[in-house]
Design a protein around this nucleic acid. Structure first.
Lengths: 361, 361
DNA sequence: ATCATATGTTGCAGTCAACAACAAATCTTG
DNA sequence: CAAGATTTGTTGTTGACTGCAACATATGAT
């Protein structure tokens, strides 16, 4: 495999073509010519290459209504390159086999009932992981080079998950954190494609955040939002620190608790309303520090933070306004994700495809 | 200028050769062959190209002591490509004309005495900026696309510095923030080349920080460290917020004040010692939030923070330890910069060279 | 039905990097 | 000190790739 020379040029162009189709869906050869800035003949040669290897499928053009010869439609063949995506939660493991172009080919889910998620992987994936080009697992926590350094949610510290998964399935795995995966998912298949610096907040048993710049996860872009210290010397946290956001937030738990609290607050329960407000303020203050440090242009509230934000956006916004400079605030959009529960799984798959396409270059 | 094709391949390789020499200094053709993974004949052709355009100079090989024909030494011609670097401070403007390879060809400095720094630019640079391929100005503050959105130090808000400099000098300028520039400088010409995620803290009249990942400045990587809120509802800050680090730190000012305080503390002044300690704690807490949000592997204390850190590292470290997860802390090195006062100027020049080399591709 | 328009196809030319054979310059060894 | 070993620069050749232009093809407009 030459690292230089004209063959690399070909590989780069081939990869660019596959990436274009994977990201933007089926396109005509004419559109591809425009998008990649290559000659018609070059596109033709590349497409012929990739059709032969089975990655692409060409359909004879149907009339577009305008004059001229109709252009051939090119589309990905999903089964030609697949990625295994797994999302690990406290109580369950979810799996999807995703094909080139983003189509979900298989899907499964299993309750854990206290079992170790790694032990459930083979059953959930049904061996499908073996044929996939990449396998990616999303876990809520601080991930560094395949190792889960810290996870409030799973209660892990320093677990080499990549190695464990490899041992259990006989293949290499990539490990990413849930929030970063979800950020990638929302950017690539959601509604956040315009964002150049996207911050995704994930509320599970712990609070994590993920930063995606220009659609790509950063080296170590996994942020332990729940362990931003908002109250120095405050309540003791499970991580050993004091005054972490997770330890200080009054409303804390799963989405069901949030729903109960919002319901109670809506029915005039003053204590519930105050609790929600103070939680929103704590979150806003922690966010202020993260925004000052990272300067995102969009924040998405995922997991149960979605419910918190929808029910109590005002205190979040005002606490944020009190802790960030006007310029950082003014270009900031606050929203909720559009992929719902699927974001992390889809993002994990997209992380895998990024590796697949990089590997083609 | 074609964006694809075999000519681009040549351009990329040419740029890679120049980058290699610029960053690692003079090298033999044999070393270049190894470093770039290209064939001997290709290196020869590229070097011949660049020698003809005047970018490179080849010296007939001198014996290395080992067997074989001595390899030709290739080095940059500094004057072949120059970058104008300017550092703007409250009280003065500093200028350097830097040549390819990193050699400083000219240097000048001017006190401002209250004048607008832009008005002093033409005099300080002596018109040298005109011939340079790139011109870069470093300013302490929050910079976004040529605009200084906020600068405690200069008292600017929303000033389009790139446009002002262009109007004053008749050429395009790039604007970066001082801390990020210094981070780039320390990474490329200092002692922080091993760091993959380098956080540089700059103490001037305001406190700013810059993040450099794999040697490159991030989009909007300029961090207003001084406006991390460490005391919600605390003292009013000039930026309009309350409880900013800048407003809360007891020892705050120029390096001279720090020196005075450390001197007093050393002579047993309990008040000075307490003030230093509390300032170190405040700084450590703000840093904790930034570290949790960005996950650097190295932190450099620049400007007068250097003095503060050297005299009172313990409270900074312990406050940091109380506000960051063990895993983030364990891989973190705290140090002081090696380029001293020059970091930002050198880094601004390197930012310019990055653009020059990117432009060759 | 003919022309205009847009696109796929084919053959050709220009460029590039790798390769191999050769030349050059140094060290090593007898 | 001379011949061989070793390393590197040089040159001519080769295979590959992309762009270009001319031609073929398929549709809409007149």
């Amino acid at each position: 495999m030459a690292r230089t020379g004209t063959e690399e040029l070909r590989r780069r162009n081939r990869a660019a073509l596959v990436e274009q189709l994977h990201r933007h869906g089926p396109q005509t050869r004419a559109e591809l010519t425009e998008a990649l800035g290559l000659n018609r003949s070059t596109i033709g040669a590349l497409a012929a290459d990739l059709a032969e290897t089975g990655h692409l499928h060409e359909t004879t053009g149907r009339s577009t209504g305008s004059a001229g010869r109709p252009s051939t439609l090119v589309e990905c063949v999903p089964k030609a390159a697949t990625v295994t995506a797994v999302e690990i939660r406290v109580d369950r493991v979810r799996f999807a086999l995703v094909g080139l172009g983003g189509e979900v080919l298989e899907r499964a889910e299993a309750e854990l009932d206290g079992a170790d998620p790694v032990d459930a992987i083979e059953v959930v994936t049904g061996g499908a992981a073996r044929d996939a080009l990449e396998a990616v697992a999303a876990v809520p926590g601080l991930v560094d080079a395949g190792v889960v350094a810290h996870s409030t949610e799973l209660g892990w510290a320093g677990r080499d998950l990549a190695a464990d998964l490899a041992a259990a399935t006989g293949r290499a795995w990539q490990v990413v954190d849930t929030a970063t995966a979800a950020a990638v998912g929302e950017w690539s298949r959601g509604d956040a494609h315009e964002s150049t610096k996207l911050l995704y907040l994930h509320g599970g048993r712990g609070l994590t955040a993920g930063l995606v710049v220009d659609g790509r996860a950063q080296r170590g872009g996994s942020i332990q939002l729940g362990h931003i210290v908002v109250q120095p010397g405050g309540h003791e946290c499970g991580c050993g620190l004091r005054g972490c956001l997770e330890a200080e937030m009054e409303v804390f738990g799963y989405a069901e608790d949030i729903e109960y609290a919002t319901l109670a607050a809506g029915m005039g329960d003053a204590a519930a309303r105050d609790g929600l407000r103070r939680s929103g303020e704590d979150l806003g203050r922690a966010l202020g520090a993260v925004v000052t440090a990272t300067g995102p242009d969009e924040i998405l509230f995922g997991g149960w933070l979605r419910e918190l934000y929808l029910s109590t956006a005002a205190p979040v916004r005002s606490a944020l306004a009190e802790t960030t400079l006007p310029h950082l605030r003014s270009r900031l959009r606050l929203r909720t994700p559009v992929l719902g529960d699927e974001g992390a799984l889809i993002g994990a798959a997209e992380t895998g495809f990024a590796a697949v396409i990089d590997g083609m270059r």
